[in-house]
Protein backbone atom coordinates (compact mmCIF):
# COMPACT_ATOMS: atom_id res chain seq x y z
CA UNK A 1 0.00 0.00 0.00
CA UNK A 2 1.23 3.48 -0.68
CA UNK A 3 1.80 5.75 2.22
CA UNK A 4 0.95 9.38 1.70
CA UNK A 5 4.17 10.58 3.21
CA UNK A 6 7.18 12.37 1.86
CA UNK A 7 9.53 10.58 4.25
CA UNK A 8 10.22 7.86 1.75
CA UNK A 9 13.84 7.09 2.53
CA UNK A 10 15.64 5.60 5.48
CA UNK A 11 15.63 8.40 8.07
CA UNK A 12 18.69 6.96 9.80
CA UNK A 13 21.07 7.41 6.84
CA UNK A 14 24.00 9.79 7.42
CA UNK A 15 22.61 12.37 5.00
CA UNK A 16 19.07 12.20 6.45
CA UNK A 17 20.49 12.69 9.93
CA UNK A 18 22.03 16.02 8.95
CA UNK A 19 20.39 19.18 10.19
CA UNK A 20 18.12 20.94 7.74
CA UNK A 21 20.53 23.87 7.62
CA UNK A 22 23.43 21.64 6.57
CA UNK A 23 21.28 20.21 3.78
CA UNK A 24 20.22 23.70 2.80
CA UNK A 25 23.90 24.73 2.55
CA UNK A 26 24.63 21.77 0.25
CA UNK A 27 21.52 22.59 -1.78
CA UNK A 28 22.59 26.19 -2.26
CA UNK A 29 26.17 25.27 -3.20
CA UNK A 30 25.13 22.67 -5.76
CA UNK A 31 22.49 24.98 -7.21
CA UNK A 32 24.85 27.94 -7.58
CA UNK A 33 27.55 25.78 -9.19
CA UNK A 34 24.98 24.34 -11.58
CA UNK A 35 24.11 27.90 -12.58
CA UNK A 36 27.63 29.28 -12.97
CA UNK A 37 29.26 26.28 -14.68
CA UNK A 38 28.78 25.90 -18.43
CA UNK A 39 31.29 23.12 -19.04
CA UNK A 40 29.43 19.91 -19.82
CA UNK A 41 32.03 17.84 -17.96
CA UNK A 42 31.47 19.88 -14.78
CA UNK A 43 27.68 20.02 -14.97
CA UNK A 44 27.41 16.34 -15.89
CA UNK A 45 29.71 15.41 -13.00
CA UNK A 46 27.59 17.52 -10.66
CA UNK A 47 24.36 15.90 -11.87
CA UNK A 48 25.95 12.47 -11.54
CA UNK A 49 27.11 13.27 -8.00
CA UNK A 50 23.61 14.33 -6.99
CA UNK A 51 22.16 11.23 -8.66
CA UNK A 52 24.58 8.97 -6.77
CA UNK A 53 23.70 10.80 -3.53
CA UNK A 54 20.01 10.18 -4.21
CA UNK A 55 20.66 6.47 -4.59
CA UNK A 56 22.96 6.43 -1.56
CA UNK A 57 20.27 7.85 0.72
CA UNK A 58 17.79 5.28 -0.57
CA UNK A 59 15.63 7.10 -3.13
CA UNK A 60 14.22 4.31 -5.23
CA UNK A 61 15.04 3.51 -8.85
CA UNK A 62 11.29 3.63 -9.42
CA UNK A 63 11.10 7.26 -8.37
CA UNK A 64 14.25 8.30 -10.22
CA UNK A 65 13.14 6.39 -13.30
CA UNK A 66 9.76 8.14 -13.12
CA UNK A 67 11.46 11.56 -13.01
CA UNK A 68 13.69 10.70 -15.96
CA UNK A 69 10.78 9.28 -17.96
CA UNK A 70 8.63 12.34 -17.41
CA UNK A 71 11.45 14.75 -18.17
CA UNK A 72 12.94 13.00 -21.20
CA UNK A 73 10.65 14.76 -23.75
CA UNK A 74 11.61 18.13 -22.25
CA UNK A 75 15.30 17.22 -22.31
CA UNK A 76 15.02 16.20 -25.96
CA UNK A 77 13.27 19.47 -26.69
CA UNK A 78 16.08 21.36 -24.95
CA UNK A 79 18.70 19.50 -26.99
CA UNK A 80 16.92 20.18 -30.26
CA UNK A 81 16.22 23.81 -29.44
CA UNK A 82 19.83 24.54 -28.56
CA UNK A 83 21.24 22.31 -31.32
CA UNK A 84 19.25 23.97 -34.08
CA UNK A 85 18.65 27.49 -32.85
CA UNK A 86 21.27 28.48 -30.28
CA UNK A 87 23.98 29.98 -32.49
CA UNK A 88 24.65 33.52 -31.36
CA UNK A 89 24.98 32.61 -27.69
CA UNK A 90 27.36 29.69 -28.19
CA UNK A 91 29.41 31.76 -30.64
CA UNK A 92 29.78 34.39 -27.94
CA UNK A 93 30.72 31.73 -25.36
CA UNK A 94 33.35 30.14 -27.61
CA UNK A 95 34.61 33.26 -29.39
CA UNK A 96 34.35 31.41 -32.69
CA UNK A 97 33.09 33.00 -35.92
CA UNK A 98 31.00 30.04 -36.97
CA UNK A 99 29.51 26.88 -35.51
CA UNK A 100 30.35 23.31 -36.53
CA UNK A 101 27.44 21.67 -38.39
CA UNK A 102 26.79 18.06 -37.42
CA UNK A 103 23.33 17.40 -38.84
CA UNK A 104 21.41 18.93 -41.78
CA UNK A 105 17.76 18.17 -42.36
CA UNK A 106 16.77 17.48 -46.01
CA UNK A 107 15.49 20.54 -47.88
CA UNK A 108 12.34 18.70 -48.88
CA UNK A 109 11.09 18.36 -45.27
CA UNK A 110 8.10 20.51 -44.40
CA UNK A 111 8.96 23.67 -42.42
CA UNK A 112 12.15 22.23 -40.86
CA UNK A 113 13.80 21.40 -44.21
CA UNK A 114 17.34 22.78 -44.46
CA UNK A 115 17.83 23.37 -40.76
CA UNK A 116 21.29 22.62 -39.39
CA UNK A 117 22.19 21.41 -35.91
CA UNK A 118 25.54 22.54 -34.55
CA UNK A 119 27.99 20.65 -32.38
CA UNK A 120 28.32 23.65 -30.04
CA UNK A 121 24.57 24.07 -29.76
CA UNK A 122 24.06 20.39 -28.96
CA UNK A 123 26.84 20.52 -26.37
CA UNK A 124 25.30 23.53 -24.74
CA UNK A 125 21.90 21.81 -24.84
CA UNK A 126 23.43 18.83 -23.03
CA UNK A 127 24.86 21.26 -20.47
CA UNK A 128 21.44 22.76 -19.85
CA UNK A 129 19.97 19.26 -19.51
CA UNK A 130 22.52 18.31 -16.88
CA UNK A 131 21.93 21.61 -15.03
CA UNK A 132 18.17 20.89 -15.02
CA UNK A 133 18.77 17.35 -13.85
CA UNK A 134 20.86 18.64 -10.95
CA UNK A 135 18.02 20.91 -9.79
CA UNK A 136 15.45 18.17 -10.30
CA UNK A 137 17.37 15.66 -8.19
CA UNK A 138 18.39 18.09 -5.47
CA UNK A 139 14.76 18.60 -4.51
CA UNK A 140 13.96 14.96 -3.62
CA UNK A 141 17.43 14.57 -2.11
CA UNK A 142 16.64 17.27 0.45
CA UNK A 143 12.86 16.87 0.74
CA UNK A 144 12.70 13.09 1.05
CA UNK A 145 15.37 13.00 3.73
CA UNK A 146 13.91 15.71 5.93
CA UNK A 147 10.94 15.37 8.26
CA UNK A 148 8.41 18.13 7.64
CA UNK A 149 8.85 19.27 11.21
CA UNK A 150 12.58 19.74 10.61
CA UNK A 151 11.71 21.95 7.67
CA UNK A 152 9.64 24.13 9.93
CA UNK A 153 12.20 24.41 12.69
CA UNK A 154 15.09 24.77 10.23
CA UNK A 155 13.39 27.53 8.27
CA UNK A 156 12.43 29.34 11.47
CA UNK A 157 16.08 29.15 12.56
CA UNK A 158 16.98 30.71 9.21
CA UNK A 159 14.71 33.63 10.21
CA UNK A 160 11.84 32.61 7.95
CA UNK A 161 8.52 33.60 9.61
CA UNK A 162 6.91 30.56 11.29
CA UNK A 163 3.67 30.91 9.34
CA UNK A 164 5.53 30.76 6.01
CA UNK A 165 7.72 27.86 7.20
CA UNK A 166 4.64 25.95 8.28
CA UNK A 167 2.95 26.63 4.95
CA UNK A 168 5.94 25.16 3.10
CA UNK A 169 5.89 22.09 5.28
CA UNK A 170 2.10 21.71 5.07
CA UNK A 171 2.26 21.99 1.28
CA UNK A 172 4.86 19.24 1.15
CA UNK A 173 2.64 17.07 3.31
CA UNK A 174 -0.40 17.91 1.24
CA UNK A 175 1.01 16.87 -2.15
CA UNK A 176 0.91 13.11 -1.57
CA UNK A 177 -2.69 13.40 -0.37
CA UNK A 178 -3.64 15.23 -3.55
CA UNK A 179 -1.89 12.60 -5.67
CA UNK A 180 -3.84 9.93 -3.79
CA UNK A 181 -7.05 11.83 -4.48
CA UNK A 182 -6.22 12.17 -8.18
CA UNK A 183 -5.54 8.45 -8.29
CA UNK A 184 -8.85 7.67 -6.57
CA UNK A 185 -10.82 9.97 -8.89
CA UNK A 186 -9.14 8.50 -11.97
CA UNK A 187 -9.93 5.00 -10.77
CA UNK A 188 -13.54 5.95 -10.17
CA UNK A 189 -13.78 7.35 -13.70
CA UNK A 190 -12.07 4.28 -15.10
CA UNK A 191 -14.78 2.20 -13.48
CA UNK A 192 -17.30 4.16 -15.52
CA UNK A 193 -15.48 2.92 -18.60
CA UNK A 194 -13.01 5.75 -19.14
CA UNK A 195 -9.62 4.13 -19.64
CA UNK A 196 -7.07 6.87 -20.20
CA UNK A 197 -4.54 4.52 -21.72
CA UNK A 198 -6.86 3.78 -24.64
CA UNK A 199 -7.66 7.44 -25.37
CA UNK A 200 -6.11 9.75 -27.92
CA UNK A 201 -4.20 12.82 -26.69
CA UNK A 202 -7.12 15.23 -27.15
CA UNK A 203 -9.65 12.99 -25.44
CA UNK A 204 -7.14 12.42 -22.67
CA UNK A 205 -6.71 16.15 -22.11
CA UNK A 206 -10.50 16.59 -22.06
CA UNK A 207 -10.88 13.79 -19.52
CA UNK A 208 -8.10 15.20 -17.36
CA UNK A 209 -9.82 18.58 -17.35
CA UNK A 210 -13.05 16.94 -16.19
CA UNK A 211 -11.23 15.00 -13.48
CA UNK A 212 -9.91 18.31 -12.22
CA UNK A 213 -13.38 19.25 -10.96
CA UNK A 214 -13.72 16.58 -8.25
CA UNK A 215 -9.99 16.81 -7.45
CA UNK A 216 -10.14 20.56 -6.91
CA UNK A 217 -13.31 20.28 -4.86
CA UNK A 218 -11.76 17.57 -2.75
CA UNK A 219 -8.54 19.55 -2.33
CA UNK A 220 -10.51 22.61 -1.24
CA UNK A 221 -12.48 20.52 1.23
CA UNK A 222 -9.33 18.95 2.64
CA UNK A 223 -7.56 22.31 2.85
CA UNK A 224 -10.53 23.77 4.70
CA UNK A 225 -10.59 20.83 7.08
CA UNK A 226 -6.86 21.12 7.76
CA UNK A 227 -7.30 24.83 8.48
CA UNK A 228 -10.07 24.06 10.98
CA UNK A 229 -7.89 21.40 12.60
CA UNK A 230 -4.88 23.72 12.81
CA UNK A 231 -6.76 26.56 14.45
CA UNK A 232 -8.52 24.17 16.80
CA UNK A 233 -5.07 23.06 17.89
CA UNK A 234 -3.91 26.54 18.79
CA UNK A 235 -2.10 27.28 15.54
CA UNK A 236 -1.91 31.04 15.11
CA UNK A 237 1.01 31.40 12.73
CA UNK A 238 2.99 33.37 15.28
CA UNK A 239 6.63 32.48 15.91
CA UNK A 240 6.37 32.63 19.69
CA UNK A 241 5.99 28.94 20.29
CA UNK A 242 8.07 26.17 21.78
CA UNK A 243 9.46 23.04 20.11
CA UNK A 244 9.54 19.52 21.46
CA UNK A 245 12.78 18.87 19.63
CA UNK A 246 14.72 22.07 19.14
CA UNK A 247 17.54 20.96 16.85
CA UNK A 248 21.05 22.13 17.54
CA UNK A 249 23.85 22.02 15.01
CA UNK A 250 26.27 19.15 15.60
CA UNK A 251 29.94 19.09 14.74
CA UNK A 252 29.10 17.05 11.64
CA UNK A 253 26.58 19.68 10.53
CA UNK A 254 29.18 22.38 11.09
CA UNK A 255 31.73 20.52 8.98
CA UNK A 256 29.21 20.00 6.17
CA UNK A 257 28.18 23.66 6.22
CA UNK A 258 31.87 24.67 6.22
CA UNK A 259 32.69 22.37 3.30
CA UNK A 260 29.67 23.60 1.39
CA UNK A 261 30.75 27.21 1.92
CA UNK A 262 34.31 26.46 0.84
CA UNK A 263 33.03 24.56 -2.20
CA UNK A 264 30.77 27.45 -3.12
CA UNK A 265 33.44 30.13 -2.80
CA UNK A 266 36.11 28.02 -4.52
CA UNK A 267 33.77 27.04 -7.36
CA UNK A 268 32.58 30.56 -8.05
CA UNK A 269 36.01 32.21 -7.71
CA UNK A 270 37.75 29.60 -9.89
CA UNK A 271 35.11 30.19 -12.55
CA UNK A 272 35.36 33.95 -12.37
CA UNK A 273 39.13 34.21 -12.00
CA UNK A 274 40.53 31.10 -13.68
CA UNK A 275 37.80 30.29 -16.18
CA UNK A 276 37.20 26.87 -14.65
CA UNK A 277 33.83 25.47 -15.71
CA UNK A 278 33.47 27.79 -18.72
CA UNK A 279 31.92 26.41 -21.87
CA UNK A 280 34.31 24.48 -24.07
CA UNK A 281 33.60 22.68 -27.31
CA UNK A 282 35.50 19.51 -26.33
Amino acid sequence: MTTPSLQVVNPTSAFAALDFRAKAALFVTASVLAVVWDDLRCTAALALAVFVACRAVGISWTYLGFVLRVMTPFFLLLLCTHGFFNKQYVLRLTGQSHVTPVLSLPESWWIVGGMVASKEGLLYGATVVSKSLTFLLLVPLCVFTTEPNQWVVGLVRLRVPYKFAFLVSATLRFFPLIFDEIQAVMETQRLRGFALESMGPLQRVRTYSRIAVPVILSAMHKAQQVEVVLQSRAFSGRSNRTYLHDPTLTMKDGVVIGLAAVGLVTGVLSTLLLGFGRFVTL
Binding site: R233, A234, R241, T242, Y243, L244, H245
Partner: peptide
Protein backbone atom coordinates in the same frame (compact mmCIF):
# COMPACT_ATOMS: atom_id res chain seq x y z
CA UNK B 1 3.22 17.96 20.63
CA UNK B 2 1.85 20.32 17.96
CA UNK B 3 -0.88 22.00 20.02
CA UNK B 4 1.34 22.08 23.12
CA UNK B 5 4.11 23.81 21.16
CA UNK B 6 1.60 26.36 19.89
CA UNK B 7 0.45 26.95 23.46
CA UNK B 8 4.10 27.56 24.44
CA UNK B 9 4.27 24.69 26.91
CA UNK B 10 7.94 24.23 27.96
CA UNK B 11 9.63 21.35 26.04
Amino acid sequence: AFALENLQVPP
